[in-house]
Amino acid sequence: MKTNTTTVNGIDTQALLGAIEAIRNNPAEAQSKWHVTSHWKGGTRSETKVKSSQLGNQTIAKDFTIGIDEPLELCGTNQFANPQEYLMAALNACMIVGYTALTALEGIELEELRIETEGEIDIQGFLGLDPSVKPGYDHLRYTVHLKGDGTPEQFERIHRTVMATSPNYFNVANAVPLKSKLVLESPATV
């Protein structure tokens, strides 16, 4: 049951349409920049800080901390999800934003939206034990569970659109060039 005709699935459709129109009229407003800083916390633990992001010419202040670890079996303390789980979570979350926004714009009310993602990595590659074993996935498998008042045709069209427009789907499905820089800090003197 719709209680507010402009809010569907928790998305203010008028605000979303306004943002789309503003970007259509001024493409510079579509430029975004994301930044995180990760610090080693001992062993396999790290902590990633998110302080701000940028959208158009607006800086958005943030204050988030993401804890990362490995399971005991990989010499971790199992205090937090590991990098692979965060990678999959980031993929799923990005696609969920797309499904939620697109269904909202079509007036489709969702009852359930769940994405299950899995993949296998042969740890021999990570450990450098066998140069013929790559350190990453051959592929990831994901299943999207959607339930709502849309038609199968609407959900299929939205599914194809999410795959075509989700930034993290693109980033995982395509090789994104990484540009590295190594800065060596001087050891502390006593």
Score class of each variant (00 low, 15 high):
Val190Ser: 09
Ser132Pro: 03
Arg45Asn: 11
His145Leu: 06
Glu185Ile: 07
Thr77His: 13
Pro167Cys: 11
Ser38Trp: 12
Gln54Met: 07
Thr189Asp: 08
Lys147Ile: 10
Thr143Ala: 08
Ala30Leu: 12
Asn9Glu: 02
His35Tyr: 12
Pro83His: 02
Leu113Glu: 09
Gly128Cys: 05
Thr44Glu: 08
Pro177His: 02
Tyr137Trp: 04
Leu184Phe: 15
Ala28Lys: 10
Asp122Ala: 04
Gln154Trp: 02
Ala101Ile: 11
Val97Arg: 02
Thr117Ala: 14
Asp63Tyr: 04
Ala173Asp: 15
Asp122Trp: 03
Glu73Met: 11
Ile158Ser: 01
Glu29Gln: 13
His39Lys: 15
Trp34Val: 05
Glu109Pro: 06
Pro167Glu: 05
Leu105Tyr: 03
Glu70Arg: 10
Glu21Gly: 00
Phe155Pro: 01
Ser46Phe: 10
Leu55Cys: 05
Lys179Ala: 08
Glu156Met: 12
Asn82Ser: 03
Ala22Gly: 09
Ser46His: 14
Ala104Lys: 01
His159Ile: 01
Ala22His: 12
Ser166Asn: 04
Glu116Gln: 03
Thr59Trp: 07
Gly148Arg: 13
Asp63Arg: 05
Pro27Asp: 04
Val162Met: 01
Leu140Tyr: 05
Gly56Ala: 05
Arg141Gly: 03
Ala101Ser: 10
Thr151Pro: 06
Lys62His: 07
Ala61Pro: 03
Asp149Glu: 04
Phe64Met: 13
Gly42Ile: 06
Leu55Glu: 05
Thr161Ala: 02
Gln124Asp: 08
Ala19Lys: 11
Tyr142Pro: 04
Gly136Met: 04
Pro187Glu: 05
Ser186Cys: 10
Ser53Thr: 06
Gly128Tyr: 12
Ile158Glu: 02
Asn57Leu: 05
Asp130Ile: 04
Val8Gln: 08
His35Met: 10
Leu146Thr: 09
Phe170Gln: 15
Glu185Gln: 15
Asn4Val: 09
Ser180Glu: 13
Glu21Cys: 00
Asn26Lys: 15
Val183Pro: 03
Thr117Pro: 09
Leu110Arg: 01
Gln14Asp: 14
Glu73Gly: 11
Arg45Ser: 05
Glu29Arg: 14
Glu73Leu: 14
Glu118Asn: 15
Ser52Tyr: 06
Ala173Leu: 13
Gly76Tyr: 04
Leu110Phe: 02
Asn168Ser: 11
Ala164Pro: 06
Phe155His: 09
Arg157Met: 03
His145Tyr: 15
Gly125Phe: 07
Val144Tyr: 07
Gln14Cys: 12
Leu91His: 07
Asp149Ala: 00
Pro187Asn: 07
Leu102Gly: 00
Ser186Phe: 14
Leu17Asn: 15
Gly42Cys: 06
Leu127Lys: 09
Ser32Met: 13
Thr37Asp: 13
Val97Glu: 03
Ala101His: 14
Lys33Asp: 11
Ala164Arg: 01
Ile60Ala: 00
Ala89Leu: 03
Glu70Cys: 08
Gly67Phe: 02
Phe80Gln: 08
Gln14Thr: 14
Gln54Lys: 09
Cys75Ala: 07
His159Cys: 04
Glu120Thr: 14
Met95Pro: 01
Ile20Phe: 12
Val172Cys: 15
Cys94Glu: 01
Leu140His: 06
Asn171Glu: 13
Asp138Glu: 14
Leu129Phe: 13
Asn92Ile: 12
Leu55Ser: 02
His39Val: 09
Glu47Met: 12
